[in-house]
């Protein structure tokens, strides 16, 4: 009798199937999706490229001149150039380690494409 009651109740319920390609799906809070890079914020410390487990982050090499007490110093900096999405494993370590919050992982997940995607300026 219990089973029959449950079966009858289920007749009037909505199906649990998500109608994904028609209706966009929601991602949970804290989901790690496509990166957003703020290139103008990057100071070139190179921490993200050093820490990346799958070497997806490509760093450049630049010489920056700094003046300290009339003396000119030359410092090598490594600004971020691009992130290869085909290598990235979306661990979020780059976001955690960045001291100036230049990399942020958004909640965008539908990244399927006809070619390998590269995020760059």
């Amino acid at each position: 009798m219990k089973v029959l009651k449950k079966a009858l109740l289920n007749l009037f319920k909505k199906p649990i199937t998500s109608q994904y390609p028609k209706i966009p799906s929601k991602t949970p809070k804290g989901f790690r999706g496509k990166h957003k890079i703020y290139f103008e914020k990057c100071t070139g410390c190179g921490l993200c490229g050093m820490l990346c487990p799958s070497n997806a982050i490509k760093l450049g090499k630049k010489i920056k001149k700094i003046k300290v007490k009339k003396l000119e110093h030359r410092v090598i900096i490594h600004p971020i150039l691009s992130i290869d999405l085909s290598k990235c494993i979306f661990c979020g370590l780059c976001q955690d380690v960045c001291p100036v919050n230049a990399i942020k992982l958004t909640r965008k997940f539908d990244l399927a494409d006809y070619h390998k995607t590269l995020i760059q300026k």
Binding site: P21, C88, F109, A112, Y114
Partner: peptide, 24 residues
């Protein structure tokens, strides 16, 4: 034909990839 990045990708992302593949 279609690349689906992610480690692993969500089931919705895989459906999206298959949906894009059908157009090819």
């Amino acid at each position: 034909d279609v690349y689906v990045p992610g480690c692993p990708p969500r089931p919705q992302a895989i459906i999206d990839g298959i949906y894009k593949a059908l157009e090819k």
